[in-house]
Design a protein around this nucleic acid. Structure first.
Lengths: 144, 144
DNA sequence: CTTAATCCCTATTGACTAGATAGAGATTTA
DNA sequence: TAAATCTCTATCTAGTCAATAGGGATTAAG
C-alpha cells in the first residue's frame, strides 16, 4: 500500500499538471482544491522540490509549479520520493539496492527471483505512467 | 517492501516444500535451520494455519506440514496473509476492496488507473510463482 | 495413566514510523 | 516597508513491526 503522503503528492502534482499553465500556484490553493491538510502538503512539496519534481517561487506572489514537463514525471518518480523504493525487498531494488541482512546466497535465493520479477513488472508500469498521460485521461473522461 | 514476517513465512514454507516429505516438522527445527526467532515463527505459522496454508499436528510428536500441494501455494497467497493485500491502494484491491476515504469519483481517478495496472502486473507474477516452482529452482541451482 | 513434548493463545515490550500540527525564520513582491 | 509567501525545526499521538514471555490445551509414548 502506498502512504497517504504519496496519495497527496500525486493529487497535488496532477492538479498542477492538469491546469497546464506554468505560473506558480500557492500551497493554500492546492490544499483547498484537493482537500489536503495545508501544513502536511507544505512538507510534501518541500521534499518534492529537493528532487526537482517541483520548483518553488518564494515571496509575495510565490507558489509551486512543476519542475519539468509533465510527461517527464512518472508515477515511479513520485512514489520513490514519498515511499522509497518500489521493490518488495532491498535486494531487488534497482535504485536503492541493499543485501538482505541474513541472506545465505543471493544468486540462489528463490524468494529473490520471484520478488525481482514482481519489481520489474511494477516498475515497467509505474515508469510508463506519467503526469501527462494521467492528465490526458482526466480530460478524456470529461473531468476537466 | 515486504515485512520481516513475510520473509520468515516464505523461508519456512520453502523449507517445508523443498523437503518433499509430508511428515510434520517441529517449529524448533524450522526455526534453527532457517534462523528464525522461535516464538515469532510460532505466531507466523499459527496465522498461516488459519488460512489453510499449513496444517498442524499437536501433541508429543507434532509439528507443521503444508496444508496443500506446494504447487497450489503461491507467493501471492503467502504475502496476502502476512502483509495484507498486494494492491498499492485499497480501491484497486481485488481480494480486499475498499473505497478510498476522500475519493471524488473512482471511475475518473487517474491515479487509480495507474495503480490498478500496477496491481494487475504484480498479481500476475506473484500468483504464478509458487512453492513448487521455487523449490525446483533451488534444486536446479544445486542448493539442495 | 502419567509425563513430556508439542502446538495454542493472550499479553506485553521497545523501537520506529505515519500523519498531522505549531510557530518562528527567510525571502520577495507590491 | 509591509504583507504574503515559502522554509525549516520541533513536536505530538496513534499505530505498527519485530520480538518475547508465560502459561494452557492436546497428544503420543513409556
Amino acid at each position: 500500500m502506498i502512504s497517504q503522503k504519496a496519495r497527496y503528492a500525486l493529487r497535488a502534482l496532477l492538479f498542477l499538471a492538469a491546469r497546464g499553465e506554468d505560473s506558480p500556484v500557492q500551497i493554500s490553493e492546492i490544499a483547498e482544491r484537493e482537500r489536503i491538510p495545508r501544513k502536511f502538503l507544505e512538507a510534501i512539496l518541500l521534499e518534492l522540490k529537493k528532487t526537482g519534481i517541483v520548483r518553488s517561487h518564494r515571496g509575495r506572489s510565490g507558489g509551486y509549479s512543476l519542475g519539468r514537463p509533465a510527461k517527464d514525471i512518472s508515477f515511479a518518480d513520485v512514489l520513490r520520493v514519498t515511499d522509497g523504493p518500489l521493490a518488495l525487498s532491498p535486494c531487488v531494488s534497482v535504485m536503492a539496492y541493499r543485501k538482505c541482512d541474513d541472506c545465505f546466497d543471493e544468486a540462489v535465493c528463490a524468494i529473490r527471483k520471484a520478488l525481482l520479477a514482481a519489481r520489474d513488472a511494477t516498475a515497467q508500469i509505474l515508469e510508463s505512467r506519467n503526469l501527462a498521460t494521467a492528465a490526458a485521461q482526466l480530460r478524456r473522461s470529461g473531468a476537466l
